[in-house]
């Protein structure tokens, strides 16, 4: 026997529940559709690849941007057999046009400690086909810059310390050479003074030579002997100078050359540091200039 429903609230209850459920499902579907559309689930994508030696700071889902606009995300990260990390960038089809020969991916941060993302710097060559690899560079974060700077500065300080120690070393070439040069200069001044006195004396005696007296001749002979001994002394001094320069100078030049090379290497390293390298204009690689009238 069928009981007749008398409460109007329960009339068509099944239908009402069905309509409610359908509305909820349709609502949920519409919500999912718009949410998906917003997130780009329905947009066609194209994959491009990058290779990097270090995956620190990179993660799946990381935004890929061009001029600040999101155009895709990191879809996959794989460690390859050669130790390199292969990144798969999933790019919206409408933005694949920016991927051309010469396109570069740059790992960047918003400010020094902001969100990380991959910035695409478009190239000017032929359009790339999906699946092609682009170059990947990383812009260092604050920790890396600090680390890099610390390393470079300690290198510089080490170099400076070594140079100062080399100059100050009491038995070192520079100190020794300075002492030798001082000694030699002192000897030279002394010998020159003596030579001057003798020359004055000789000058004074010249009028007496005319007398040809034995005494004068003897005195002149004595003067000549003195001159000879002084000349020998000068010769010894000159030999000493020659010895000093022969022995120490090549060493000094070699050491200076080495120090200059070290300084050059340090400068090159500093030039390579971010943010200094950003300020240094990169030289374009070109062949040597051709001459239309060489011969």
């Amino acid at each position: 026997m069928k009981i007749k429903e008398t409460d109007s609230r329960f009339i068509f209850l099944r239908g009402k529940i069905l309509v409610f459920i359908i509305t909820a499902i349709v609502g949920a579907l519409i919500f999912l559709y718009f949410a998906g559309k917003e997130r780009g689930f329905f947009t066609k994508k194209k994959d491009f690849y990058c290779l990097t030696s270090k995956a620190t700071g990179l993660y799946v889902g990381m935004p890929v941007r061009i001029s600040g606009f999101k155009i895709g995300r990191v879809k996959k990260m794989e460690l390859q057999d050669d130790g390199f990390v292969k990144l798969t960038l999933s790019i919206e089809e409408s933005h694949a046009k920016w991927f051309r020969d010469g396109t570069v991916a740059l790992f960047s941060k918003e400010g020094f400690i902001g969100e990380s993302y991959i910035e695409i710097l478009p190239g000017k060559g032929q359009p790339l086909k999906p699946g092609q690899t682009i170059k990947f560079f990383r812009q260092a974060g604050i920790e890396e810059i600090a680390g890099e700077l610390k390393e470079e500065i300690s290198e510089i300080l080490k170099g400076v310390k070594e140079t100062i120690n080399y100059i100050n070393e009491p038995e070192g070439n520079i100190k020794k050479s300075i002492n030798n040069i001082e000694r030699v200069s002192h000897n030279l001044i002394e010998t020159t003074n003596q030579l001057n006195i003798l020359l004055v004396e000789l000058n004074r005696k010249i009028p007496e030579i005319a007398d040809k007296s034995d005494k004068t001749v003897e005195e002149i002979k004595e003067l000549i002997r003195l001159l000879q001994s002084l000349s020998k002394e000068l010769h010894d001094t000159a030999t000493a100078i020659k010895g000093v320069t022969k022995k120490d100078m090549p060493l000094m030049i070699e050491q200076t050359k080495k120090s200059m090379q070290d300084i050059d290497e340090i400068l090159q390293s500093i030039k390579g540091l971010w943010p200094i390298r950003e300020g240094i204009r990169k030289k374009e690689i070109r062949p040597i200039e051709a001459d239309t009238y060489e011969k």
Partner: peptide, 18 residues
């Protein structure tokens, strides 16, 4: 493999030769 350090090394060699 695209290796940025090798590319910069190569550029510096060419500049040095020039």
């Amino acid at each position: 493999v695209e290796q940025p350090h090798r590319i910069s090394e190569l550029s510096s060699l060419i500049l040095q030769a020039n």
